[in-house]
């Protein structure tokens, strides 16, 4: 039953928690690739929970034990200019329940594409403020089963994301805040009727849209980046899991997590970034209380001649 965390939190997390700085930036941070710079690599994510919120009621479920979601995501970023980057990623996801009889699920999940634009930067003394807008698109790469939560690997919707972000930098100290609106398409079930708060004689589900917020702050050095993160995802609508019911794709899935990000660029191999991070869900609704870890390795280089400047 409750894989919410999986998709709701874990998958966004795979997108969110990717490293920073010159390589391997994400749609959630203030790092830009330079013009013609290409970075790509893999991120591994492990998230698990043994308690979850059924609506607002926190419980465990011995028929699932600990539910885990793992993924390996390929990610690539490219600097069209110093101020305009594009990013793409796609994960392979697999789930497992440690107890009970529910079968695990696995497969390729969603392709995501982002465009990040930094139109404005103000500098005053040792302070710098930059504004960003980010547009995103994601869609399933395969017809995976969405109606087997929490074992399903995804929710199956095609999403369009619009995000605004402000980044403040004082010497090596940084603080970044952003807010996003995620429009989600309807999804289809393999069955031809379902009950949410009423009976629907259709296989199609109206998916509520989602708001996403993040604050991150910490040290951003030449080789090392260390940040603390506070992230919130709020579903704008949807319904609560009824008592002792299974979760459903259009549940009101919310989660607030705290986490850390570390990224290190190997001095002797400046093309190589090593990334590690973790986060913990401190509040949620229709979501698992997940603890997640991730680690990644990214390689960056210039496609063309490195431009002067």
């Amino acid at each position: 039953m409750k894989r919410m965390l999986t998709v709701l939190v874990v998958i966004p997390f795979m997108l969110l928690l990717v490293p920073a700085r010159s390589h391997a930036q994400t749609d959630l941070d203030a790092i830009m690739m330079n013009k013609y710079q290409f970075c790509n690599g893999f991120m591994y994510n492990y998230a698990s929970w043994d308690h979850y919120w059924e609506g607002t009621f926190k419980r465990d479920n011995k028929n699932m034990g600990t539910v885990s979601t793992q993924s390996v995501m390929y990610m690539a970023n490219y600097g069209i200019t110093d101020r305009l980057n594009i990013m793409a990623g796609a994960p392979y996801v697999w789930t497992k329940a440690s107890a009970g009889t529910l079968h695990s699920m696995k497969g390729v999940q969603d392709l995501s594409l982002f465009v990040k634009w930094k139109p404005v930067t103000w500098t005053f003394g040792k302070n710098k403020i930059s504004l960003f807008t980010i547009g995103g698109f994601s869609t399933p790469l395969a017809d995976y089963v969405i109606d087997f939560l929490p074992m399903s690997i995804g929710l199956g919707s095609t999403n369009i994301t619009a995000r605004g972000m402000v980044d403040y930098k004082h010497k090596r100290f940084t603080a970044t805040g952003s807010a996003a609106y995620v429009w989600r398409s309807n999804v289809k079930l393999d069955r031809d009727s379902y009950y949410d708060t009423e009976l629907h004689l259709t296989d199609e589900i109206k998916m509520p849209n989602v708001a996403n917020y993040q604050l991150r702050t910490g040290y951003r050095g030449r080789y090392l980046i260390a940040e603390a993160l506070l992230t919130n995802m709020t579903t704008l609508g949807g319904f609560d899991i009824t008592k002792n019911n299974m979760p459903f794709p259009s549940n009101r899935m919310n989660a607030t997590t705290v986490g850390v990000n570390l990224k290190y660029t190997v001095k002797q191999l400046a093309n190589l970034d090593v990334y590690a991070g973790g986060n913990y869900t401190i509040a949620g609704r229709n979501a698992g209380q997940a603890t997640a870890y991730n680690a990644g390795l990214f390689y960056a280089f210039y496609f063309c001649k490195k431009p002067k400047s």
């Binding site: 109606d147 393999d190 069955r191 379902y194 009950y195 019911n245 299974m246």
Partner: peptide, 9 residues
């Protein structure tokens, strides 16, 4: 899943 007709159906 088309025929499951389980809980909450």
């Amino acid at each position: 899943h088309f025929w499951a007709d389980g809980v909450s159906t």
